[in-house]
């Protein structure tokens, strides 16, 4: 235990970068990769912002996201929408993506416009803003995972295999732990590549 503490301690050190302090600890933050980017900084670096962030990542702790609007997947799916209507990127490329507020407002201009959550949405749109949606499923940048949605969709991997049954969820919650064991179990079962370079580069 003591030895492990020494290792962690030796990895930690503080380096001043243009007047700002970052923890030196192998870490990664990338464009659009979720937490890790110090938004107020004048520089971009994959360093962790704080020791706490580093510890959380070490243990793989991902906080439960708090969404700006209590978007309910259940109702949208009940009303006949498909996952790909909003997450259109899944069939074409690596990222699922989510639609811009203009897409939401195309319907919600009229539909359920008086509901409190929709009013929040309308207020964002009126301000020229997007709701700051929080990612539910993401990898730490140090995982160096280049996950690609499209090939999985093309091979008939259903969305719920990795994301749970969203038809039963209101605000999306993380129901599956997408660690490497999860990926490899399926990859092995289906006899597809388990080479590191398939995902990590």
């Amino acid at each position: 235990m003591a030895a492990a503490l020494v290792i962690v301690a030796s990895l930690c050190g503080v380096r001043a970068v243009r007047g700002q302090t970052f923890l030196i600890l192998a870490a990664g933050a990338e464009p659009g990769a979720g937490p890790g980017v110090p938004p107020d900084s004048s520089v971009f670096t994959p360093a962790h912002r704080s020791f706490l962030d580093a510890v959380k990542e070490y243990f793989g702790i991902q906080s439960t996201p708090v969404q700006p609007i209590a978007f309910t997947h259940k109702i949208h799916l009940q009303n006949g929408l498909q996952c790909t209507n909003c997450h259109a990127g899944v069939t074409q490329g690596p990222n699922a993506g989510y639609p811009s507020i203009t897409f939401c407002m195309a319907c919600h201009q009229a539909i359920a416009a008086d509901k409190p959550e929709i009013k929040k949405l309308t207020a964002y749109a009126a301000n020229g803003q997007e709701p700051p949606w929080q990612r539910v499923y993401w990898f730490y940048p140090t995982a160096h995972v280049r996950f690609q949605h499209a090939p999985h969709i093309r091979n008939d991997i259903a969305c719920e295999q990795c994301h749970g049954d969203l038809a039963q969820q209101t605000v999306a919650v993380k129901t599956k732990n997408l660690n490497m064991n999860f990926c490899l179990t399926c990859h092995k079962a289906k006899g597809v590549s388990v080479d590191c370079m398939t995902c990590h580069y």
Binding site: I24, L25, A26, A27, G28, A29, E30, P31, G32, F44, P46, A47, P94, P141, T142, H144, R146, H200, Y201
Partner: peptide, 13 residues
Amino acid sequence: NLQLNPDVSVRGV
């Protein structure tokens, strides 16, 4: 940082 290629990871220390 906006030039970074999202297809390639950013390596750390």
